[in-house]
């Protein structure tokens, strides 16, 4: 394959261009209008930048993995209810501890507990529902959607019983926020996400075969079901860590994966995964830069990502129907 690919466009160049764009955006994010105590501001911005890059890259790569295993490019891992579980957890914590108690929780401890719980929930969902083989992906997704609706319903019910100040605390947690990220959590997230990303890229040749569909892939001698379970475990870890770090960004993965596919211009996961990761990171860094520095607005990037992600989802559905 490598030999015949020589006559085709070179996706690796596009990958380097994307990496260059992200580097330029990162420099802009760090050094734009740098005034006052430079060291302190730079450290603050660097922490935020690291969170943006990690979450964007992990979400983009996790979405490509999920789409390959599910053989559906309209899906994001968020659809199986991980986001809903996160919101339910926040609501339950505020309802139990009160707004002040919630705010006083140690950030790192909360991050660890939430990561563990979200990973456990996703692993249980993927693992239990795939016992009959990866052919059960559709059943897993449907169960995840139903569980998500149930958790959202329960969270909304609990939110109605909160007083307005406590509800405001929950509302803030319902959208991803890159404003304050605990440094300890960031280091741990970096280790998990970089490790999971490296494992995903190591699986790239097998994922290329898996993208042919389960029957063809099995016919070619790929242990498809084992690969699917391994890929979904990586998805669970990446999405859980990213969500616990900043909150839910359901549609970011969809935008990053779609953009990554267009920019990569290839089916090869060795290029697709980094392209989706770089796209996700670039979207978040560029978006946060525009909102934070140019427009002077805060904490609205996630809303905009969801808005455009929703529109893209509709466009993909309509495009598929007309195809």
């Amino acid at each position: 394959m490598a030999e015949t690919a020589g006559t085709f466009p070179r996706p690796a160049r596009r990958l380097w261009a994307l990496a260059g764009l992200l580097a330029a955006l990162s420099l802009l994010f760090l050094f734009w209008h740098l005034r006052g105590p430079t060291g302190f501001i730079l450290s603050l911005r660097a922490t935020r930048l690291a969170a943006l890059i990690l979450v964007g890259a992990a979400t983009g790569m996790a979405t490509v993995l999920f789409q390959t295993v599910a053989a559906n490019r309209l899906l994001t891992p968020g659809i199986v209810g991980i986001d809903a579980l996160f919101i339910f957890l926040q609501t339950a914590l505020v309802a139990t501890l009160g707004g002040l108690g919630y705010a006083l929780l140690p950030e790192f401890g909360r991050f660890l507990a939430e990561t563990a719980l979200l990973t456990l929930a996703a692993t249980a969902l993927f693992g239990l529902l795939l016992r009959r083989g990866a052919g059960d992906v559709t059943r897993m997704i449907l169960t995840g959607v139903i569980l998500g609706v149930l958790l959202r319903g329960l969270a909304e019910l609990a939110q109605r019983m909160l007083d307005p100040s406590e509800f405001a605390v929950v509302q803030q947690a319902m959208f991803a926020s890159f404003g304050s990220v605990p440094t300890g959590a960031l280091w741990m997230a970096a280790v998990v996400l970089v490790g999971a990303g490296a494992l995903a890229i190591a699986m790239a040749p097998a994922l290329d075969v898996a993208a042919l569909g389960r029957p063809t892939a099995r016919g070619l001698g790929l242990a498809h079901d084992r690969l699917a379970v391994a890929a979904l475990m990586l998805v669970a870890a990446m999405v859980a860590v990213a969500t616990a770090l900043v909150g839910p960004v359901t549609f970011l993965g969809l935008i990053a994966a779609a953009l990554g596919r267009v920019l990569a211009g290839t089916y090869r996961h060795a290029v697709l995964l980094p392209a989706a990761g770089l796209s996700g990171a670039a979207i978040l860094v560029a978006g946060q830069f525009v909102f934070e520095r140019l427009l002077g607005l805060h904490s609205t990037l996630a809303v905009l990502v969801e808005f455009f992600g929703g529109l893209l989802f509709l466009a993909l559905v309509l495009n598929r129907r007309s195809a």
Binding site: M1, T4, L212, P215, L220, G221
Partner: peptide, 28 residues
Amino acid sequence: QQSPTVASRLRVAELVGFGRWPHHAGRP
């Protein structure tokens, strides 16, 4: 198999190359 699915953007030579997977497992 009947009506197999194929990833878009996959080129003919690349598809045919997948036939070699059992022999090279990703390292042609």
